[in-house]
Amino acid sequence: MINYLNLLAFNNLVVFVGMPVVLFFVSLGMGGGSKKAIDYNPGKWEKKKTWVSFTDYENMVDQYEDAYGELYSNPGDYLSCCCSLIFILVFGFLILMSQSMSIVLLDPVIDQILFIVLEYSIVAVAGFVIGFRIPSIDAQEFFTRPLKGDVYSFASELAGVPGIRAGMNVELGVRSGVQTIIDAEVKAYVQNLPETVQIQVQVSHSGFAYPYLVGTAYKGGRVSPHEDSFRIATRYPARLEYSMDKDVMVIVARFDIPERTSSVPHISMGDFRELAALLAGELQDNYNPE
């Protein structure tokens, strides 16, 4: 009798703990293998660049996410894998505890079948999904996440600044009827000036997002290195730093934030647009091609 009980307990341990763990790793392998086996019609991409507004770019990104969102590599899911493994062990031991306490929901045999179907279904689906999400693919360079983040958020505000023409320079790839975003870059120019005059957005992080602008003009004249402060309709005063980098005139526009403040500094989008308008005006005033 004792041997029978020990054999039954061992059998339940294998069914509700051992086999689900094995099934989880098998499902992981199948998920990863199915992603690696996807056919991306290998061949040469036909590339073309196009200028789009920020609104059009965001629409393109939404379509891109719908088409390729599941193809990204998600290394962070290794943590999900560990958590799922712990869940499988806990869930299996809870089932064993319920059986040892003779808790019956419908019928001992039916309960066992339901527990097996439920646990194995959850384990198989979770393992396959996580296994599919973790690995990269052969064409990973063409399925990277589109440009977003603080730089993009502030740069998109330039579209509404008088004197600035801002948008996205997008490189598209087409192959076998499939179109994807290969690369995307924010571009901002000063209106009525050649494209050799550009404005770039930079964002540093030291407890808060601190955006600043770098205006450049290739062979657009010369300036003496100096700094000027401006009081404009913004929370913080603006500071412009003028310099030369060989044939390139450089003007850096930033806010002069006190080193010690009673609260965390915050630069609003409205203030950022005012700073951009100031920089655009200075580039126009100082542009004097050689």
Rank of each mutant, 00 (worst) to 15 (best):
Y4E: 15
L5F: 13
L8C: 12
A9P: 01
F10G: 14
N11A: 15
L13G: 15
V14K: 10
F16R: 05
G18M: 07
G18V: 04
F25P: 02
G29F: 09
M30C: 10
K36A: 11
K36D: 02
D39T: 08
N41W: 01
G43T: 01
E46F: 02
T50K: 12
W51D: 13
S53M: 06
T55I: 11
N59E: 15
M60K: 09
M60S: 09
Y68Q: 05
Y72E: 03
L79E: 08
I88A: 01
F91A: 15
F93K: 09
I95S: 05
L96V: 00
S100G: 06
P108H: 03
V109M: 13
I113R: 07
L114M: 14
I122M: 14
V129N: 08
F132E: 01
A139C: 04
A139D: 13
E141D: 07
E141M: 02
F143A: 01
T144V: 09
T144I: 03
T144P: 00
L147R: 12
V151C: 08
Y152E: 03
I164A: 02
R165P: 00
A166D: 01
G167D: 07
M168K: 06
G173H: 02
R175P: 01
R175A: 01
D183M: 06
V186W: 00
P194L: 09
E195H: 13
Q198S: 11
I199D: 00
Q200L: 03
V201N: 00
Y210C: 12
V214D: 01
V214L: 11
G215Q: 07
A217D: 08
S224M: 09
E227S: 14
A233C: 06
R235H: 10
R254E: 11
S263C: 07
S268M: 05
S268V: 07
M269S: 11
D271S: 08
R273I: 02
A277I: 03
P289E: 10
